[in-house]
Protein backbone atom coordinates (compact mmCIF):
# COMPACT_ATOMS: atom_id res chain seq x y z
CA UNK A 1 0.00 0.00 0.00
CA UNK A 2 1.35 3.42 -0.90
CA UNK A 3 1.54 5.49 2.21
CA UNK A 4 0.89 9.18 2.45
CA UNK A 5 -0.73 9.35 -0.98
CA UNK A 6 -4.43 9.95 -1.35
CA UNK A 7 -6.45 8.00 -3.90
CA UNK A 8 -6.98 11.20 -5.85
CA UNK A 9 -3.28 11.88 -6.10
CA UNK A 10 -2.67 8.32 -7.22
CA UNK A 11 -5.27 8.62 -9.95
CA UNK A 12 -3.77 11.85 -11.21
CA UNK A 13 -0.37 10.27 -11.56
CA UNK A 14 -1.59 7.22 -13.51
CA UNK A 15 -2.25 7.50 -17.25
CA UNK A 16 -5.94 7.87 -18.00
CA UNK A 17 -6.45 4.40 -19.49
CA UNK A 18 -4.91 2.51 -16.58
CA UNK A 19 -7.68 2.92 -14.05
CA UNK A 20 -10.35 0.81 -15.81
CA UNK A 21 -7.86 -2.01 -16.13
CA UNK A 22 -7.11 -1.77 -12.45
CA UNK A 23 -10.82 -2.11 -11.73
CA UNK A 24 -11.09 -5.37 -13.64
CA UNK A 25 -7.62 -6.60 -12.62
CA UNK A 26 -8.72 -8.57 -9.53
CA UNK A 27 -10.70 -11.04 -11.62
CA UNK A 28 -7.86 -11.59 -14.07
CA UNK A 29 -5.23 -11.85 -11.37
CA UNK A 30 -7.28 -14.37 -9.40
CA UNK A 31 -8.24 -16.29 -12.52
CA UNK A 32 -4.61 -16.29 -13.61
CA UNK A 33 -3.36 -17.60 -10.29
CA UNK A 34 -6.10 -20.15 -9.56
CA UNK A 35 -7.38 -20.94 -13.07
CA UNK A 36 -5.03 -20.38 -15.94
CA UNK A 37 -1.69 -21.05 -14.30
CA UNK A 38 -2.64 -24.44 -12.82
CA UNK A 39 -4.09 -25.56 -16.16
CA UNK A 40 -0.98 -24.57 -18.10
CA UNK A 41 1.40 -25.88 -15.47
CA UNK A 42 -0.48 -29.19 -15.33
CA UNK A 43 0.04 -29.39 -19.09
CA UNK A 44 3.76 -28.81 -18.60
CA UNK A 45 3.99 -31.46 -15.86
CA UNK A 46 2.10 -33.93 -18.07
CA UNK A 47 4.97 -33.90 -20.56
CA UNK A 48 7.36 -35.29 -17.95
CA UNK A 49 7.99 -38.25 -15.77
CA UNK A 50 7.46 -36.22 -12.63
CA UNK A 51 8.03 -37.66 -9.18
CA UNK A 52 7.09 -34.89 -6.73
CA UNK A 53 10.04 -35.65 -4.46
CA UNK A 54 12.30 -37.15 -7.12
CA UNK A 55 13.25 -36.86 -10.76
CA UNK A 56 11.62 -34.77 -13.47
CA UNK A 57 12.45 -36.25 -16.88
CA UNK A 58 11.13 -35.01 -20.22
CA UNK A 59 8.84 -37.51 -21.95
CA UNK A 60 7.13 -35.46 -24.64
CA UNK A 61 3.71 -36.87 -25.40
CA UNK A 62 4.44 -40.36 -24.08
CA UNK A 63 2.13 -39.98 -21.08
CA UNK A 64 -0.71 -39.28 -23.49
CA UNK A 65 0.02 -42.21 -25.81
CA UNK A 66 0.35 -44.46 -22.76
CA UNK A 67 -2.93 -43.14 -21.45
CA UNK A 68 -4.80 -43.87 -24.65
CA UNK A 69 -3.54 -47.46 -24.50
CA UNK A 70 -4.22 -47.87 -20.78
CA UNK A 71 -7.22 -50.12 -20.05
CA UNK A 72 -7.47 -48.58 -16.55
CA UNK A 73 -8.15 -45.18 -18.10
CA UNK A 74 -11.00 -46.48 -20.25
CA UNK A 75 -12.33 -48.49 -17.33
CA UNK A 76 -12.40 -45.33 -15.23
CA UNK A 77 -14.05 -43.41 -18.06
CA UNK A 78 -16.81 -46.00 -18.38
CA UNK A 79 -17.32 -46.03 -14.60
CA UNK A 80 -17.48 -42.25 -14.46
CA UNK A 81 -20.09 -42.01 -17.21
CA UNK A 82 -22.06 -44.90 -15.76
CA UNK A 83 -22.23 -43.32 -12.31
CA UNK A 84 -23.00 -39.96 -13.88
CA UNK A 85 -25.96 -41.30 -15.89
CA UNK A 86 -27.31 -43.46 -13.06
CA UNK A 87 -27.22 -40.49 -10.72
CA UNK A 88 -28.19 -37.61 -13.00
CA UNK A 89 -31.23 -38.89 -14.90
CA UNK A 90 -33.35 -39.93 -11.89
CA UNK A 91 -32.01 -37.00 -9.91
CA UNK A 92 -33.23 -34.37 -12.37
CA UNK A 93 -36.56 -36.12 -12.86
CA UNK A 94 -37.17 -36.27 -9.12
CA UNK A 95 -36.01 -32.68 -8.72
CA UNK A 96 -38.52 -31.55 -11.34
CA UNK A 97 -41.41 -33.27 -9.58
CA UNK A 98 -40.20 -32.02 -6.21
CA UNK A 99 -40.08 -28.46 -7.52
CA UNK A 100 -43.62 -28.77 -8.87
CA UNK A 101 -44.83 -29.94 -5.47
CA UNK A 102 -42.98 -27.12 -3.70
CA UNK A 103 -44.48 -24.67 -6.16
CA UNK A 104 -48.01 -25.97 -5.61
CA UNK A 105 -50.57 -23.77 -3.87
CA UNK A 106 -51.72 -26.55 -1.54
CA UNK A 107 -48.49 -26.93 0.40
CA UNK A 108 -48.29 -25.59 3.96
CA UNK A 109 -45.01 -24.55 5.58
CA UNK A 110 -43.67 -23.86 2.11
CA UNK A 111 -40.52 -22.01 3.20
CA UNK A 112 -39.69 -24.75 5.66
CA UNK A 113 -39.85 -27.42 2.99
CA UNK A 114 -37.88 -25.31 0.54
CA UNK A 115 -35.10 -24.95 3.07
CA UNK A 116 -35.28 -28.60 4.04
CA UNK A 117 -34.56 -29.88 0.52
CA UNK A 118 -31.26 -28.02 0.55
CA UNK A 119 -30.04 -29.58 3.78
CA UNK A 120 -28.45 -32.68 2.15
CA UNK A 121 -26.47 -30.34 -0.07
CA UNK A 122 -24.85 -28.49 2.79
CA UNK A 123 -23.98 -31.73 4.57
CA UNK A 124 -20.29 -32.65 4.37
CA UNK A 125 -19.75 -35.03 1.48
CA UNK A 126 -17.49 -37.21 3.60
CA UNK A 127 -20.18 -37.51 6.26
CA UNK A 128 -22.68 -38.54 3.58
CA UNK A 129 -20.11 -41.01 2.23
CA UNK A 130 -19.48 -42.62 5.60
CA UNK A 131 -23.17 -42.96 6.45
CA UNK A 132 -24.10 -44.37 3.05
CA UNK A 133 -21.15 -46.74 3.12
CA UNK A 134 -22.51 -48.12 6.38
CA UNK A 135 -26.03 -48.33 4.96
CA UNK A 136 -24.66 -50.36 2.04
CA UNK A 137 -22.39 -52.53 4.19
CA UNK A 138 -22.36 -56.20 3.27
CA UNK A 139 -22.61 -57.78 6.71
CA UNK A 140 -24.10 -55.12 8.95
CA UNK A 141 -25.71 -52.65 6.53
CA UNK A 142 -29.27 -51.38 6.84
CA UNK A 143 -30.06 -51.94 3.15
CA UNK A 144 -29.11 -55.62 3.33
CA UNK A 145 -31.08 -55.95 6.54
CA UNK A 146 -34.13 -54.59 4.70
CA UNK A 147 -33.44 -56.98 1.81
CA UNK A 148 -33.32 -59.81 4.33
CA UNK A 149 -36.62 -58.88 5.93
CA UNK A 150 -38.46 -58.77 2.61
CA UNK A 151 -36.86 -62.03 1.52
CA UNK A 152 -34.38 -60.74 -1.05
CA UNK A 153 -30.79 -61.96 -1.31
CA UNK A 154 -28.10 -59.93 0.41
CA UNK A 155 -25.91 -57.91 -1.94
CA UNK A 156 -22.19 -57.31 -1.52
CA UNK A 157 -22.61 -53.71 -2.70
CA UNK A 158 -18.97 -52.66 -3.17
CA UNK A 159 -17.96 -55.96 -4.80
CA UNK A 160 -20.02 -55.70 -7.99
CA UNK A 161 -19.82 -53.12 -10.76
CA UNK A 162 -23.49 -52.22 -11.09
CA UNK A 163 -24.26 -52.55 -7.39
CA UNK A 164 -21.36 -50.27 -6.44
CA UNK A 165 -22.40 -47.72 -9.07
CA UNK A 166 -25.94 -47.72 -7.70
CA UNK A 167 -24.70 -47.16 -4.16
CA UNK A 168 -22.42 -44.30 -5.20
CA UNK A 169 -25.10 -42.77 -7.44
CA UNK A 170 -27.49 -42.80 -4.49
CA UNK A 171 -25.04 -40.59 -2.55
CA UNK A 172 -24.81 -38.15 -5.43
CA UNK A 173 -28.60 -38.09 -5.75
CA UNK A 174 -29.02 -37.54 -2.04
CA UNK A 175 -26.80 -34.49 -2.12
CA UNK A 176 -27.91 -32.82 -5.33
CA UNK A 177 -31.62 -33.52 -5.87
CA UNK A 178 -32.77 -30.77 -3.53
CA UNK A 179 -30.32 -28.28 -4.99
CA UNK A 180 -31.65 -28.87 -8.51
CA UNK A 181 -35.22 -28.75 -7.23
CA UNK A 182 -34.61 -25.24 -5.90
CA UNK A 183 -33.22 -24.10 -9.23
CA UNK A 184 -36.29 -25.51 -11.01
CA UNK A 185 -38.52 -23.88 -8.43
CA UNK A 186 -36.99 -20.47 -9.07
CA UNK A 187 -37.50 -20.90 -12.80
CA UNK A 188 -41.07 -22.12 -12.33
CA UNK A 189 -41.97 -18.99 -10.45
CA UNK A 190 -41.07 -16.89 -13.46
CA UNK A 191 -43.45 -18.77 -15.77
CA UNK A 192 -46.37 -16.39 -16.52
CA UNK A 193 -49.48 -17.39 -14.60
CA UNK A 194 -51.62 -16.49 -17.60
CA UNK A 195 -50.40 -19.63 -19.42
CA UNK A 196 -51.81 -21.82 -16.67
CA UNK A 197 -55.05 -19.84 -16.52
CA UNK A 198 -55.60 -20.26 -20.24
CA UNK A 199 -54.80 -23.97 -20.00
CA UNK A 200 -57.27 -24.34 -17.15
CA UNK A 201 -59.98 -22.64 -19.21
CA UNK A 202 -59.26 -25.15 -21.96
CA UNK A 203 -59.77 -27.94 -19.46
CA UNK A 204 -56.15 -29.14 -19.01
CA UNK A 205 -55.51 -31.06 -15.78
CA UNK A 206 -52.51 -30.66 -13.45
CA UNK A 207 -50.41 -33.34 -15.10
CA UNK A 208 -51.13 -31.99 -18.54
CA UNK A 209 -50.23 -28.48 -17.42
CA UNK A 210 -46.99 -29.79 -15.95
CA UNK A 211 -46.00 -31.66 -19.11
CA UNK A 212 -47.09 -29.07 -21.65
CA UNK A 213 -46.40 -25.78 -19.92
CA UNK A 214 -43.97 -26.22 -17.02
CA UNK A 215 -41.48 -28.58 -18.65
CA UNK A 216 -41.21 -26.72 -22.01
CA UNK A 217 -40.90 -23.39 -20.20
CA UNK A 218 -38.10 -24.83 -18.06
CA UNK A 219 -36.05 -26.03 -21.01
CA UNK A 220 -33.18 -23.56 -20.64
CA UNK A 221 -33.03 -24.25 -16.91
CA UNK A 222 -33.02 -27.99 -17.47
CA UNK A 223 -30.16 -27.60 -19.91
CA UNK A 224 -28.29 -25.54 -17.32
CA UNK A 225 -28.72 -28.20 -14.65
CA UNK A 226 -27.61 -30.88 -17.11
CA UNK A 227 -24.42 -28.94 -17.83
CA UNK A 228 -23.69 -28.37 -14.16
CA UNK A 229 -24.42 -32.03 -13.36
CA UNK A 230 -22.12 -33.09 -16.17
CA UNK A 231 -19.24 -31.03 -14.87
CA UNK A 232 -19.84 -32.26 -11.32
CA UNK A 233 -20.59 -35.83 -12.33
CA UNK A 234 -17.38 -36.26 -14.29
CA UNK A 235 -15.42 -35.19 -11.22
CA UNK A 236 -17.11 -37.40 -8.64
CA UNK A 237 -14.39 -38.29 -6.15
CA UNK A 238 -15.12 -38.25 -2.44
CA UNK A 239 -18.12 -40.59 -2.63
CA UNK A 240 -16.29 -43.54 -4.26
CA UNK A 241 -13.16 -42.83 -2.22
CA UNK A 242 -15.01 -43.13 1.07
CA UNK A 243 -17.13 -46.00 -0.25
CA UNK A 244 -13.99 -47.98 -1.09
CA UNK A 245 -12.71 -47.83 2.50
CA UNK A 246 -9.18 -49.17 2.86
CA UNK A 247 -8.66 -49.61 -0.88
CA UNK A 248 -10.60 -46.47 -1.82
CA UNK A 249 -8.25 -45.17 -4.48
CA UNK A 250 -8.29 -48.52 -6.30
CA UNK A 251 -12.06 -48.31 -6.60
CA UNK A 252 -12.49 -51.93 -5.54
CA UNK A 253 -10.65 -55.16 -6.22
CA UNK A 254 -11.41 -55.03 -9.96
CA UNK A 255 -11.38 -51.22 -10.16
CA UNK A 256 -15.12 -51.62 -10.66
CA UNK A 257 -15.95 -48.20 -9.24
CA UNK A 258 -12.75 -46.29 -9.85
CA UNK A 259 -13.69 -42.95 -11.39
CA UNK A 260 -11.40 -40.72 -13.44
CA UNK A 261 -10.58 -38.45 -10.52
CA UNK A 262 -9.83 -41.47 -8.31
CA UNK A 263 -7.56 -42.84 -11.02
CA UNK A 264 -5.86 -39.45 -11.19
CA UNK A 265 -5.43 -39.38 -7.42
CA UNK A 266 -4.11 -42.94 -7.35
CA UNK A 267 -1.52 -42.26 -10.05
CA UNK A 268 -0.47 -38.92 -8.59
CA UNK A 269 -0.55 -39.29 -4.86
CA UNK A 270 -0.23 -43.01 -4.27
CA UNK A 271 2.07 -43.97 -7.09
CA UNK A 272 3.89 -40.61 -7.19
CA UNK A 273 3.55 -40.27 -10.94
CA UNK A 274 2.48 -36.63 -11.18
CA UNK A 275 3.20 -36.54 -14.91
CA UNK A 276 0.77 -39.30 -15.68
CA UNK A 277 -1.77 -37.87 -13.25
CA UNK A 278 -1.50 -34.52 -15.04
CA UNK A 279 -2.13 -36.21 -18.37
CA UNK A 280 -5.29 -37.75 -16.87
CA UNK A 281 -6.28 -34.29 -15.62
CA UNK A 282 -5.90 -32.86 -19.10
CA UNK A 283 -7.86 -35.71 -20.65
CA UNK A 284 -10.63 -35.03 -18.14
CA UNK A 285 -10.46 -31.31 -18.90
CA UNK A 286 -10.86 -31.98 -22.63
CA UNK A 287 -13.78 -34.34 -22.00
CA UNK A 288 -15.60 -31.75 -19.91
CA UNK A 289 -14.84 -29.09 -22.51
CA UNK A 290 -16.25 -31.21 -25.35
CA UNK A 291 -19.36 -32.11 -23.38
CA UNK A 292 -19.90 -28.49 -22.38
CA UNK A 293 -19.67 -27.36 -26.01
CA UNK A 294 -22.13 -30.06 -27.09
CA UNK A 295 -24.45 -29.02 -24.28
CA UNK A 296 -24.14 -25.37 -25.20
CA UNK A 297 -24.91 -26.01 -28.87
CA UNK A 298 -27.88 -28.15 -27.92
CA UNK A 299 -29.21 -25.61 -25.49
CA UNK A 300 -28.92 -22.79 -28.03
CA UNK A 301 -30.80 -24.79 -30.61
CA UNK A 302 -33.49 -25.74 -28.12
CA UNK A 303 -34.01 -22.29 -26.65
CA UNK A 304 -34.16 -20.60 -30.06
CA UNK A 305 -35.97 -23.37 -31.91
Amino acid sequence: MPTGTGAGALRRRLPGRTVPYLYIAPFFVVFGVFGLFPIVYTGWVSLHEWNPIGTHAWLGLRNYTDLMADPRFWNATVNTFSIWIISTVPQLAVALVLAAVLNGPMLRLRTGFRMAVLVPNITSVVAVGIIFTQLFGRDFGLVNWLFDTVGLDRVDWPAGRLSSHLAIASMVMWRWTGYNALIYLAAMQSIPRSLYEVAELDGAGRVRQFLHITVPQLRPTIIFTVIVSTIGGLQVFAEPLVFGGQAGTDGGQSRQFQTLTLFLYEQGFRDLDFGYASAIAWALFVMILVLSVVNYRLSRRISTG
Binding site: D70, P71, R72, D156, A159, A247, D250, Q253, S254, D271
Partner: peptide, 28 residues
Protein backbone atom coordinates in the same frame (compact mmCIF):
# COMPACT_ATOMS: atom_id res chain seq x y z
CA UNK B 1 -3.84 -58.13 -2.76
CA UNK B 2 -6.44 -56.97 -5.28
CA UNK B 3 -5.84 -60.09 -7.35
CA UNK B 4 -6.42 -62.40 -4.39
CA UNK B 5 -9.50 -60.34 -3.56
CA UNK B 6 -10.84 -60.85 -7.08
CA UNK B 7 -10.64 -64.59 -6.49
CA UNK B 8 -12.21 -64.21 -3.06
CA UNK B 9 -15.11 -62.15 -4.46
CA UNK B 10 -15.57 -64.59 -7.33
CA UNK B 11 -14.70 -62.13 -10.10
CA UNK B 12 -11.96 -64.30 -11.56
CA UNK B 13 -10.47 -67.80 -11.41
CA UNK B 14 -7.00 -68.01 -9.82
CA UNK B 15 -5.29 -68.43 -13.20
CA UNK B 16 -7.01 -65.41 -14.72
CA UNK B 17 -6.39 -63.36 -11.61
CA UNK B 18 -2.67 -64.20 -11.65
CA UNK B 19 -2.43 -63.01 -15.26
CA UNK B 20 -4.48 -59.86 -14.64
CA UNK B 21 -2.39 -59.09 -11.54
CA UNK B 22 0.87 -59.33 -13.48
CA UNK B 23 -0.64 -57.09 -16.20
CA UNK B 24 -1.70 -54.55 -13.58
CA UNK B 25 1.76 -54.54 -11.99
CA UNK B 26 3.41 -54.09 -15.38
CA UNK B 27 1.21 -51.04 -15.95
CA UNK B 28 2.08 -49.63 -12.53
Amino acid sequence: GNGVDRVEKGDEEPGEAWASTLDAIALE
